[in-house]
Design a protein around this nucleic acid. Sequence first.
DNA 1: CCGCTTTATCAAAGCGATTTAACTATGGGA
DNA 2: TCCCATAGTTAAATCGCTTTGATAAAGCGG
Lengths: 352, 352
Amino acid sequence: MSESKKRYTIKDIAEQSGVSLSTVSLVLNDNPRISQATRARVLKTIERLGYQPNRMARALAWRHTRTLAVLVPQLRHAFADVYFGEIVSGIYDRASRLGYKILLEVARNEFIESKEYLQLYDQKFIDGIMFIGANSRHRFIAELADGTRPFMLVNNYTKEFDLNYVVSNYRYGGWQAAKHLVRLGHQRIGFISGGVAEIQTSQDILESFKEVLDESGIAYDPKLIVDGWLTEEGGMKAAEELLRQNPDVTAIFALNDKMALGAMKKMNELGLRVPQDVAVVGFDDIPQASFAIPGLTTIHQPLYEIGKLACERMVELIHGKVSRVQEVIPIYLTVRESCGARLKEAAAAKTE
Amino acid sequence: MSESKKRYTIKDIAEQSGVSLSTVSLVLNDNPRISQATRARVLKTIERLGYQPNRMARALAWRHTRTLAVLVPQLRHAFADVYFGEIVSGIYDRASRLGYKILLEVARNEFIESKEYLQLYDQKFIDGIMFIGANSRHRFIAELADGTRPFMLVNNYTKEFDLNYVVSNYRYGGWQAAKHLVRLGHQRIGFISGGVAEIQTSQDILESFKEVLDESGIAYDPKLIVDGWLTEEGGMKAAEELLRQNPDVTAIFALNDKMALGAMKKMNELGLRVPQDVAVVGFDDIPQASFAIPGLTTIHQPLYEIGKLACERMVELIHGKVSRVQEVIPIYLTVRESCGARLKEAAAAKTE
DNA sequence: CCGCTTTATCAAAGCGATTTAACTATGGGA
DNA sequence: TCCCATAGTTAAATCGCTTTGATAAAGCGG
């Protein structure tokens, strides 16, 4: 065990440099009132002793911490989810570039009941919270709507409260996905929904689906909407029910990739071929989407980028450079094999 | 915008309760020297005013922060990986139970070069670091081996330095997987490796594989070992090469599930059936393993539990309750369909 | 009623920084 | 030569809480 080297304080630096304590502090904070000469001298002893300012002391004096909390809902194991993972990666990268640290938090009951979401601010532990995956059951966010405490919804929004957010254009995404199926000639399209009751963005996708039906003159049939609980297993069950009750279905639009993948698995079991018998389109473009057999046609969400952007805005919010952020990011369809569009193209090419 | 309520300090509480500042602090810290009566009185005004002690001020006085850093290597998008996700979930849950906060860090070049891993301690920003996914190229961990700063490897270890760790028994896991294939009668077993040069636990699996061959009297054939880079795509390529060069291979042991799944995908493409033509066994038991078709037989790693345990030990380390932690967790085979063991059982049952 | 414990409370000195008002040279203009 | 503005540095107050040694009050046996 090495001798535990003494930790230096600003006082040591002051003494060793032959200046006052405050001078050192001013150097540390790049204050222009310090001459280049003393500045250099102080910097040198800082370097020599390997001095590191105590972050807690600074935070205390500054009254902010340069730390952001990233809040995720309590799913089975929240952090294990690629969706969150991508966004968090984006947030992290931008945050560290800006000199911010990331604190992890999960919106468990305990977190909500003990009002941790306020405590974190009030204990001066963080400068802001970024909430990924909020839904309408998270009533507590109402308490963060007054703008007193920097708060933001990431890839999500709500019509109920006036909150800050950065979100994909789910409506446009949903519209593209549905339109893609309709263009390929599908008329009986099953829709695997999930979280529609509590997630605004889920609602948006469903609505855009209906919109496409409407503008295409296809009758909306509630029997074709089945809930898949946003999970793979749910997607399997939903597909089974959908196909059993409506054998005439030729395409399925799942509100997220997990369910789409589940549906594909079920069809495989049932001996149905994708896309020949049933076309499938998903939403999110998670890594497995491209890896599936056949590759899943889906709406690509630039989650990493969204995380970065949201973080950038959050810091601006904290610094008071902006007072509101409500940004909508465009997203686009990624065509793979699960809808047969490529097959058609190939066929078309052949007949030419 | 609501009126920004004044933040109370310990001084306000003292005045409002008619006691001294120190008394309030003693109450806050459950010091038995305070009588029940005053204690109750102080607690009441704390409650009434909704007072929250400033965490930075406490950290400054305490000289520790009750914050743990979780460090992950720089993969493409580190947090998007289920492997890390599960472990982080475990760490988070245990940490918050123990009153600790989790800070996220990525071992990027910048992080290493600027010696952030030391700064975090020296700036008194965290009490300890838990490193998930270290490998032998992370030379900097040598600087954390002196025990001066609480540090721990999670589900990983190294023979080079004397570090703290909590790790699965990879050798035993690998042994079981290989043994399973041999018991099912396989003699020509392909091994898809990955990270063997830099990851100790990868080496362990490979070695245990060789050990099984050895004790089973099967000749070790280097041609049957192919690198799959630990990724799905790599697994596909490895499987292709393996099967092309060695058509007599009847089973594949992949060092992780991602590669096993990739191999299965490739075999599907090649028209080979799993398990009838080639049996496959993986390692890790990621969610997709059970979801694959056929279900992947694999070694189950209780990642969430490992995270919890590691966190628990880390806190003990910080409190000086232990001075070294080097724990090895047993792990077991989970039999699904990819090796055909169930088929055999069923067949055996029929002939009875 | 007197010393002696025991118990409860408080004053004061930190923890390690920031920040502002005040002070000291220095140099230029009148 | 005197005055004043300017630049550079510092003293002192602050941030909000912990902790220890001192003090006061209360309890107790004789």
